[in-house]
């Protein structure tokens, strides 16, 4: 019983989330979504996460320069530092980092916002006034989070290259041009594609979890607090699992691609 009850609860949550995602996709196909509402969401989300993403991107780039420097020095392979750390950012760290930052800032905020609208009956009122809340509230937020994620990924990537360059100059005695020149050698098309694919998966997960949890809040002000906590935990664990899954999937796809091209 100790394991079964939580397991059922988790399955229930996952199933509910997937059904909600289906509902969102149906809404997106069936109704026209107000473009201004999406733009407002993109603006809010990007502005809210701008500084956190930029600063964390910078420090991650710097961190990798320091860490890789220690390891590569042993092999005298310092010259590949730029390509290697950028490749790691594009393929893995960047998407994950953006997802973590967004889940903290936007995920928690969106679920709290929708949760408050739910418990104060604003969502019911909206339905009574002849508006579909899925179309008016959920869909713009969903699209906003996904589109902003790509914008922020680009920003985080630039900042991590900047951080990497600065630290590489400081600790590894590499000139910025040496650092940047190796990037195209190691960052190939499929790396970029797999990074973008991951970013898409993560942002869809994040957008689904926070809108789902927020939209289905019950139980007053306390319920909103619970929702935010559940969102934070579910996105964190979900991201790690999805990261494993997409890495695996990307590996399989890459192998197939290679097999086809050769």
């Amino acid at each position: 019983m100790v394991i079964i009850t939580p397991a059922i609860r988790i399955l229930d949550g996952v199933g509910g989330g997937l059904m909600f995602l289906g509902e969102i996709i149906r809404t997106l196909r069936k109704y026209k979504i107000d473009r201004e509402a999406i733009l407002t969401q993109i603006y809010n989300i990007s502005m809210a996460s701008f500084f956190t993403t930029a600063s964390s991107g910078f420090f991650v780039g710097a961190l990798m320069s320091v860490q890789f420097n220690m390891q590569l020095r042993q092999f005298g392979a310092l010259s590949v530092l730029g390509g290697l750390s950028t490749s790691a950012t594009v393929r893995e760290l960047g998407p994950l980092l953006i997802a973590f930052m967004l889940s903290g800032k936007v995920g928690a905020y969106t679920s709290a916002e929708l949760g408050i609208m739910r418990v104060t009956e604003q969502i019911d009122a909206m339905r009574c006034l002849g508006t579909n809340p899925m179309q008016y509230l959920v869909a713009p937020r969903f699209l906003g989070i996904i589109i902003s994620a790509f914008f922020l990924l680009f920003l985080g990537l630039l900042m991590s290259i900047l951080g990497g360059v600065i630290l590489a100059t400081l600790v590894a005695d590499l000139s910025p041009s040496e650092f940047i020149n190796t990037i195209p050698m190691y960052v190939e098309g499929h790396s970029v594609l797999s990074g973008l694919f991951k970013c898409l998966c993560f942002s869809v997960l994040l957008a689904t979890v926070c809108t789902y949890k927020g939209y289905t809040t019950t139980g007053g002000a306390k319920g909103v607090g619970k929702t935010v906590l559940a969102t934070a935990l579910a996105t964190m664990v979900g991201l790690v699992l999805l990261d494993w899954f997409t890495t695996y999937l990307a590996g399989v796809l890459l192998d197939t691609w290679r097999a086809i091209t050769i």
Binding site: M117, E121, D124, R127, C128
Partner: peptide, 19 residues
Amino acid sequence: YFEVRKMCGMVFQHPALFD
């Protein structure tokens, strides 16, 4: 239900105004 809700207005317990 769209048509029904046009005929039946509901005033909620909370003011439920859009913030």
